[in-house]
Amino acid sequence: MEEGLKIELGKQGVFVTTIEELYNWGRRSSIWPMQFGLACCAIEMIATTMARYDLARFGAEVFRPSPRQADLMIISGTVTKKMAPQVVRLYNQMAEPKYVIAMGACAISGGPFKQGYNVLKGIDRYIPVDVHIPGCPPRPEALIQAFMTLQKKIDGQNLTGEGRPRHLDAEAQGEFPVPVQGEHDLEPSSNRLVWPLPMKTGIRD
């Protein structure tokens, strides 16, 4: 429906929309994150929820400690190999629809601690990530922008058809295998479904 007609009808007190828009608007305006701070980025995340850069006005009213009641997991801080199985387990315990923001360089790819025997080089090796925020630590404004990017992404999700979100798709999996702590490293060292090898050997196209 064209915008002009919508505005005209609006002036008469008639509100026209699609179910998709309404459904997504409800979802994206009340994303409740899970209280999941790991390291330094957690302090910037807490600062974002404090009075100066209030995150609650974007819908993140409460940070739920329990994964069952949360929609969003903000991985803020370095994920170590000792902690990785717990992160994946928590992600599995969240109810669909669920989203992940990887905050900070450490969550994206290991960050400054990449040369680590205990550092997981990016949480997207095991779980799918929706928004990445670079920075060490990213400023509170960057976290707010990531939140808004996630809201835009949710706004654009179709309810039917190919691009529908996981919770409306009976075939899509929401549970990811939890890695096991082996003798030298985590086993498996990454989840090929989530983090595919991007280059084929010998093929440069």
Partner: peptide
């Protein structure tokens, strides 16, 4: 990348499945 993929296939993984065993 070739060395890494070869290592994975030795561990008995097939394409599309999640490889088991450590690297």
């Amino acid at each position: 990348a070739a060395a890494h993929t070869a290592g994975e296939q030795i561990a008995g993984a097939s394409a599309g499945a999640i490889p088991g065993g450590g690297q």
